[in-house]
Simulated assay, not measured.
Amino acid sequence: MTVTLITGAANGLGWELARACHARGDHLLLTDIDAPALAERVAQLGGHGVMGIAGDITDTRLQRQLLEQCRARFGRLDLLINNAGITHRSPATRTDPAVFRKVMAVDYQAPVELTLAALPLLRESRGQITAIGSMAGWMPVLGRAGYCAAKSALGQFFEVLRAELTLDGIHLLLVYPSFLDTSIERHALGADGQPAGHARSTIGKVRGADWMAGQILRALEQRRERLFPDRGSYLASLLWRLAPAFYYRQMSRRFAGELPKSGASDA
């Protein structure tokens, strides 16, 4: 029996991962802040092997509840997928600092805290951890300063943690997607913390969440350490390192709509 815990499981990539893991026979513990949507997803999958617990993943009480219920219900944890995330679309100089704090709490602090709390269970099973990062953690993207910072912090933390996990026989996969068609962008925050009022800018092909879920499960089966599913974004990250001035010119043209209007005052 494989027991998988997925955060942010009610929509987007989290839901597609839940469907794919369920199809291969995993027992699932799913969590999401959207309680009605989570209850609907658990009902869709059905069966005694699926459990849902709704709540805010940044709340350490929820994190403890998830792990306590995982042990009580299933007796083990084999795979932790840190998927829950949030983003924003707003110029850094116009953004309420509370937005940055929220993005950092969800995208960095929560997965770090949940992972560390889950280590006793994962050591017992010599299990696996997946952290969903972003190519935005490898290169600057206009209008996403807080998101870039959070995903960069996430990647660096887990890359350091990897060496310690290896001593316990725990496998770690870091995933660096580019632009996906998921609810994270549809729910992006604006500068004031309300939903962003403009469409996102993108580079390259926007991939489906089901495609991304399949790539992640294959990478886990192959016990890969890192997954860069979008070749174009990976090459762009190399361009940022090799020719940063050229990268900035290209990014500024492509993401011009994310720049503050000339002459506008700072918030």
Rank of each mutant, 00 (worst) to 15 (best):
A92S: 13
N82D: 05
I57D: 02
L116I: 08
A105K: 07
V99A: 12
E68S: 12
T58S: 10
A54W: 01
T130F: 04
T87C: 06
L79V: 14
R61C: 15
G75A: 06
R144F: 15
N83T: 12
V99D: 04
L142F: 02
L45M: 10
G52C: 03
R64L: 01
E159C: 04
A92C: 14
E124A: 14
F158N: 11
A105M: 05
L142S: 15
A118R: 11
L62M: 10
R76N: 09
A110H: 11
D56H: 06
A117S: 05
E124S: 11
L122K: 09
G127K: 12
P111A: 02
V106G: 08
G75Y: 03
V141Y: 05
R76C: 10
A43E: 11
G46D: 08
Y108W: 07
L62C: 09
T93Q: 12
C70K: 07
A98N: 02
M51C: 15
P91F: 10
A105V: 04
L79M: 03
D107C: 13
R123F: 01
S90Y: 01
S90I: 11
W138M: 12
T58N: 09
Q63Y: 09
G143R: 13
D96A: 09
H48E: 15
A92W: 10
V141W: 06
A117Q: 13
Y108S: 08
H88C: 05
E164R: 02
M104A: 11
L167T: 04
R73C: 11
G49M: 02
Y147K: 00
A43S: 12
I86N: 02
P111D: 05
V106D: 01
I57F: 03
M139R: 09
M104V: 08
F100R: 00
I53S: 00
